[in-house]
């Protein structure tokens, strides 16, 4: 841990799930970036498009770039886990590895997900016996891989955390279910199905969990409106939050 004055705290060495030694490697890796992860393009500064924006910022366009793939060495135990996973699994299971903000993310191709989590749980050197969270993210502008599922695994044995990310296209929203390996994913996957419409193949009972059973649509997709009504106060009208002008 580095405090506000930049001094390193030696007391917590070995207690952190994030390995501090990756920091310098991650910086080195950035120079070898080959592909930018553009997920969206931001226009203007105030959420308006066309002639409505007279601020002069209307012509501004900025790509939204997610952290790109890192190169080995990632540092610390990250390499150990990554190498083990590469030797155990099928060769093309891992799409890329991103080390960012002290967290490691393995992008797994969906056909290899079940096999990968089986190794992650069962292999004594990996032993991620606990699935702490599973949820979705919708990137409508990332063509061909609009729907992402992020799985957060925890190894209580080794005190490590990793994230798996699996992507599926909107027109084929199928991802293998991990309930057979992590029973706790049952409700998480139902929730992700409910909110994003991702179908988890092999789930024992994939039904809605939060919304009513007959609800149309999947509310946490980006194209699903937030809802709300305009509020009138003393002659002025305030639009609902998703229709207000906002900083983009």
């Amino acid at each position: 841990m580095v405090d506000a004055k930049g001094a390193k705290d030696e007391r917590d060495e070995g207690t952190k799930t994030q390995d501090a030694s990756h920091e310098i490697h991650a910086e080195l890796a950035k120079s070898e970036v080959r592909e930018l992860e553009i997920v969206d393009v931001r226009e203007g500064a105030f959420g308006t498009h066309g002639t409505g924006d007279t601020s002069g910022f209307g012509g501004l366009t900025q790509p939204v770039i997610m952290p790109s793939a890192s190169q080995q060495p990632y540092g610390g135990w990250y390499d150990e886990v990554s190498d083990k996973l590469t030797t155990l699994g099928t060769p093309d299971a891992i799409e890329k590895v991103v080390v960012d903000r002290g967290e490691i993310t393995f992008f797994i191709r969906r056909h290899a997900l079940l096999e990968t989590v089986t190794h992650l749980r069962n292999d004594p050197a990996l032993r991620f016996e606990f699935c702490s969270s599973l949820s979705g993210v919708h990137f409508p502008h990332e063509k061909g891989r609009e729907l992402h599922v992020a799985i957060h695994l925890l190894s209580m044995t080794h005190n490590r955390r990793i994230r798996l990310e699996v992507a599926a296209p909107d027109d084929d929203p199928h991802i293998p279910s991990v309930v057979s390996i992590y029973p706790t994913a049952d409700w998480h996957e139902r929730e992700t199905y409910d909110f994003f419409g991702i179908i988890f193949d092999g789930h024992p009972g994939l039904t809605r969990i939060m919304m009513p059973d007959d609800w149309p649509g999947h509310p946490q997709r980006k194209d699903y409106p937030l809802g709300g009504i305009p509020v009138e106060y003393k002659g002025g009208t305030i639009a609902p939050p998703d229709q207000r002008r906002s900083y983009s």
Partner: peptide, 8 residues
């Protein structure tokens, strides 16, 4: 800055 994090 763009990216993701999980804190617990």
């Amino acid at each position: 800055p763009a990216g993701q994090a999980y804190a617990s």
